[in-house]
Design a protein around this nucleic acid. Structure first.
Lengths: 209, 209
DNA sequence: TAGATTGTTAATCGATTAACAATC
DNA sequence: TAGATTGTTAATCGATTAACAATC
């Protein structure tokens, strides 16, 4: 394991860390103190060697012969994912989905809470949603910078998604979660994750019969 | 390319097919008649060889020197994904997210439309959502079988997700899209796709600064 | 001590990309 | 014909899994 600077870690590894974290938090709620990679692997359907290797990218968190101390590993994964600080999120699009996301309690009480909601539709501007007021897009960049927001959610119709992404990049956002059914073009410094219900269902359809 | 039976194709390939389909439909709306793997690759940020190889698993759909005929390729991908028939979807969970999904117009007018909504909460049962009536869970298996439903969406809180998945499997559902933050245990014949906003955002947080 | 389990190297597996003959 | 592009094989790349010394 490298000292100081973390090595370049693949996206696959980073995507598994939240899964580990969620599982460990469930263990903590049940007051389980220690867990082995074997137990984790069984419950999460992931190879135990995979889990050990993933964690070892970031440090030596376990004890040979014993396993991992649950509270300690939670703390470490939270540090790695930067969940030990507040990371306000900007949401663009106050439609059905945007409102559902804003009201999602698991998000509301987390470090990744939605801190500002935007929509370009004048009928939406001013609406109260989950304790926030929907803002227009005029001062988007200023508002995002003021609040130190680095993560954005795109929840607008597909034809508007690229324009919204452009403004997010302009505002200094470096991580985008895109719910619109569209491929976004962004600079290589910006990370985009896609979530599209239609595509997911279509992929599932392949396996029917 | 094998005749008749399709070869075993990796999940990665199947997940790209909806991306291709969506892109091709956009081209069709613009009345573009022909497209090369190079053009597709540029717009979708996918290696052209990858695209050709993916498609070649299922047949010879292109013409050397020319490219792919857009309407023909759309038809073929729809057949591969079984979108040339109606595949009704069962939704369990009529909370914020469930309602947002039910109202999602792109889903409503597709072959993968939500055909039945269930919730165990007596206060939700009987509600009208997107032209459907929320049903209780008592006759879940019967209703699902009656309507020939093979695909299900889990939109309930995490602690209830596994129980819902079990009943879906019991009802003959073979594809599950799970929005609950929980790993589901299902028989190997059942395909599960995960969609968890929190995990996605947490993975994005890793890349901040 | 004996048993268990990590961290890590080596082996394997699978997916992506390059290259090119075939051919429109 | 000359240029373009597919379908496919071979090469490369990267991720997963197995194995095991170190050690609690």
């Amino acid at each position: 394991m490298l000292q100081g600077k973390t090595p370049v870690v693949s996206q696959a590894v980073v995507r598994r860390l939240p899964i580990y974290l969620r599982y460990l938090q469930q263990l903590q709620a049940r007051e389980v103190d220690t867990v082995s990679s074997q137990e984790m692997g069984r419950d999460l359907d992931i190879n135990p060697a995979q889990i050990r290797k993933d964690l070892a990218y970031f440090g030596e968190f376990g004890r040979k012969g014993i396993g991992y101390h649950v509270p300690y590993l939670i703390e470490k994964i939270r540090q790695i994912l930067k969940l030990d600080r507040n990371l306000p999120v900007a949401l663009v699009g106050a439609g059905h989905l945007g409102i559902a996301l804003s009201n999602y309690s698991r998000l509301r009480r987390s470090e990744l809470a939605i801190a500002a909601i935007f929509d370009k539709d004048p009928r939406k501007i001013g609406l109260a949603v989950a304790g926030l007021t929907v803002q227009g897009m005029d001062d988007f960049e200023t508002r995002v910078r003021e609040q130190g927001i680095r993560i954005g959610i795109v929840a607008v119709p597909a034809p508007e998604a690229q324009a919204v992404a452009n403004r997010m990049v302009e505002a200094g956002i470096v991580g985008i979660l895109n719910f619109a059914p569209a491929t976004l073009r962004t600079p290589p410094t910006v990370h985009v994750r896609y979530s599209d219900v239609t595509s997911e269902l279509q992929a599932l359809a392949y396996y029917v019969r």
